[in-house]
Every structure is written in C-alpha cells, then in structure tokens.
C-alpha cells in the first residue's frame, strides 16, 4: 500500500504539491490524472524516492522512501534516461545487472509483442518505438509497485492500444499495484480501478471509476471536467 499524507512540495514559490493525501491499495491500477503542471510527475518522483517532500509523509508498505522501497518500485520516467550510444540490448543488459528481479523471459516476450529489435539504437527510434522500448525495460522487472509517468504521451492510437494491452497483461499475470499518470483520460479509463484527479497540487476527485460513472451517468472525462470547473469558481 502506498500512503501519501498531507504532501507538500514547493519549487521556489510555487507549491507543486499542496497538502495532497491519498492511498493506493495493493492489486489496483490507479490513474493519477491532471492538467499540465498539476503535480503528477512530482508526486510520482517523491514516491519513487527521487525527490523529498517539504512537509507530509509518504509510506510504501509502512516504510518511508529509501533504498529498500526503491527495490520494490519500478519507475518509468517520462524523460529519456538512456545514453545516446545505447542499443536496446545494452539497456537490457544494464537493467539485468542492476536489478535482481529482472526477468529475461518477460523481456523476450515483450520484444516479440512489440516487435522490437534489440540491435536498434534507443535514441534513433521513433517516439512510439522508444515508448515501447522504455515500457519493455520497465515491465521486465517483477517489482511490486509500478509507477508509469505519461506512458501514452505523443504516441499514435495503434501503439497506445498495444501499450495498454501490455500493461494490463502484466497486471493480470502479476497483480502488482500500478500508479499511472496521464492526461489521456479516455485512453486509460478502461484499465483503471481508481482515479485521482489533481489540479495545482490539490486533490479534486478520488474514487472508483466504475462507481463514479454509474452514479453520475457520465464519462470519466465529463466527471473530471466537472470537478475542474467546480474548483475554478
């Protein structure tokens, strides 16, 4: 269980996380939705232990982010972290050396599924292919928590569907907990259990997607827009 309590983080004068609290239960896919600059990526980075909160507390299975929790967490950042000389196979070797939970059979399954070539240079791949490569590198670990930062941004609909299928397939097999940030609301809604909608560092909406839709008879996008409009007045 990931528990975030009264998280506050400021960059200069700007409060990026403003007293944010939520719980991500085990075995669920939670969507962290929000406008640009809402604080989604910052939230993920603090959970991953790459940033510290100014105030408040984050616990992962009761422990504050440290080296032990990092081993339990698999973080897919939205920025490119691989060297320009690296082929996909180099990055796979690197991951295998760093993480004991790297799973070669998952990696080769995903190579097939995404039709990727290990000999291809990561930096020369198209945006969609690069997204698949990055997802392969992330999903081939067997970590308990998976944090995905914008896995769909700038990717064509066909590749998006493949990426969504790969994420759900991995979840079906392993039942880990997944926290996924995006602004492609309609793209992720079929894979979510819970939704968190944040705007300017504050939590505006939190709940089970299917129950919210059933109660309001609206699409998730409409529900989220409603919460956004309400917050602006």
């Amino acid at each position: 269980m990931i528990k975030v309590e009264h998280a506050v983080k400021a960059f200069g004068r700007k409060k990026v996380l403003d007293n944010l609290s939520f719980v991500a239960e085990e075995g669920q896919i939670v969507g962290l939705l929000g406008t640009n600059g809402a604080g989604k990526s910052t939230m993920l980075r603090t959970i991953a232990g790459l940033l510290r909160l100014d105030q408040g507390e984050i616990t992962i299975d009761g422990k504050q982010p440290n080296l032990t929790t990092r081993a339990m967490i698999n973080f897919l950042p939205d920025v490119d972290v691989w060297y320009s000389w690296m082929k996909l196979s180099d990055a796979m070797k690197y991951m295998r050396d760093i993480y004991w939970d790297w799973d070669d059979s998952k990696a080769s399954h995903l190579l097939d599924f995404f039709e990727l070539k290990p000999s291809a240079l990561i930096c020369e791949a198209s945006k969609g292919t690069r997204a698949k490569m990055k997802l392969l590198l992330a999903l081939s670990r067997q970590a308990k928590y998976l944090l995905l930062d914008e896995p769909f941004s700038g990717i064509d609909p066909f590749a998006r569907q493949q990426i969504a299928q790969a994420i759900v397939e991995d979840f079906v097999e392993e039942g880990q907990s997944i926290l996924i940030t995006t602004h492609e609301v309609s793209e992720v809604e079929i894979m979510l259990d819970e939704v968190l909608f944040i705007h300017e560092g504050k939590l505006l909406l939190n709940g089970n997607v299917e129950k919210l839709k059933q109660a309001s008879n609206q699409s998730l996008l409409e529900i989220v827009k409603g919460a956004y409009e309400l917050a602006r007045v």
Binding site: G27, Q28, I29, Q161, A164, Q165, I167, V168, E169, F171, V172, I190, M191, L192, D193, E210
Partner: peptide, 17 residues
C-alpha cells in the same frame, strides 16, 4: 476472465465484476 482482460485491455477487477 484473464483472457478477456488481456484481449480488451480492461482492468481484470472490472471483468471480475
């Protein structure tokens, strides 16, 4: 349930329901 979740890319808890 598992097959359908994978095929549709839908959350398995939703399929279960």
């Amino acid at each position: 349930r598992r097959e359908l979740a994978k095929e549709l890319g839908v959350n398995p808890n939703t399929i279960q329901r």
